[in-house]
Amino acid sequence: MDSPVTDDEARTRLLDAAEALFYADGIQAVGMDRIRAESGVALKRLYRIFPAKEALVTAYLERRDQRWMAGLREAVAGAPEPVTAVFDWLATWFAEPGFRGCAFQNAYGELGAGPAGVLDVVHRHKAELRDLLAGLVGPDGPPGLADQLLILVEGATAVASLDPGPAPAHRAAEAARTLRGHP
Score class of each variant (00 low, 15 high):
1 M>E: 02
1 M>I: 02
2 D>V: 12
2 D>S: 13
2 D>F: 11
2 D>H: 13
5 V>G: 01
5 V>D: 10
8 D>F: 00
10 A>K: 08
11 R>D: 04
13 R>I: 01
13 R>L: 09
16 D>C: 02
17 A>P: 01
18 A>L: 13
19 E>Y: 11
20 A>D: 14
21 L>A: 14
21 L>T: 00
21 L>W: 00
21 L>D: 03
22 F>N: 03
22 F>E: 05
23 Y>L: 11
23 Y>G: 11
23 Y>C: 06
24 A>Q: 11
26 G>A: 06
30 V>E: 06
31 G>Q: 08
33 D>Y: 13
34 R>A: 15
35 I>M: 11
37 A>S: 15
39 S>Y: 04
39 S>K: 08
42 A>E: 10
43 L>K: 14
44 K>D: 10
44 K>L: 10
44 K>N: 11
44 K>F: 06
45 R>S: 05
47 Y>I: 05
48 R>Q: 13
49 I>S: 08
52 A>Y: 04
56 L>Y: 00
59 A>F: 08
61 L>K: 05
61 L>A: 11
61 L>P: 07
61 L>C: 12
61 L>V: 12
64 R>K: 13
67 R>E: 08
70 A>K: 12
71 G>H: 05
73 R>T: 07
79 A>W: 00
79 A>N: 00
79 A>Y: 00
81 E>W: 06
81 E>H: 13
86 V>D: 02
88 D>R: 15
88 D>K: 15
89 W>Q: 07
90 L>D: 04
90 L>R: 05
90 L>M: 15
90 L>V: 02
91 A>R: 09
92 T>E: 12
93 W>C: 09
94 F>Q: 01
95 A>V: 04
95 A>R: 05
96 E>Q: 09
97 P>G: 05
99 F>G: 01
102 C>T: 06
103 A>N: 02
104 F>P: 01
104 F>W: 06
105 Q>M: 11
109 G>C: 04
110 E>A: 09
113 A>V: 14
114 G>D: 10
115 P>F: 03
118 V>I: 10
118 V>P: 03
119 L>F: 00
120 D>M: 11
122 V>W: 09
123 H>L: 15
125 H>V: 04
126 K>F: 13
126 K>Q: 11
127 A>K: 07
128 E>Q: 09
128 E>Y: 00
130 R>W: 10
130 R>N: 14
132 L>C: 01
132 L>H: 03
134 A>M: 11
134 A>Q: 13
134 A>R: 07
135 G>P: 02
137 V>N: 12
137 V>C: 13
138 G>K: 07
138 G>H: 08
139 P>W: 12
140 D>K: 14
140 D>Y: 10
140 D>Q: 15
141 G>C: 08
142 P>M: 13
143 P>D: 12
145 L>H: 04
146 A>N: 06
146 A>K: 03
147 D>H: 02
147 D>E: 13
148 Q>I: 00
150 L>P: 00
152 L>N: 03
156 A>M: 06
156 A>S: 15
157 T>W: 09
158 A>M: 15
158 A>N: 09
160 A>T: 01
160 A>M: 05
161 S>I: 01
162 L>H: 04
164 P>N: 03
164 P>G: 09
164 P>V: 07
164 P>Y: 05
168 P>A: 06
170 H>P: 02
170 H>W: 15
170 H>N: 14
172 A>K: 08
176 A>M: 13
176 A>K: 11
176 A>F: 11
177 R>A: 15
178 T>D: 06
178 T>P: 00
180 R>E: 13
180 R>D: 07
182 H>S: 14
182 H>E: 15
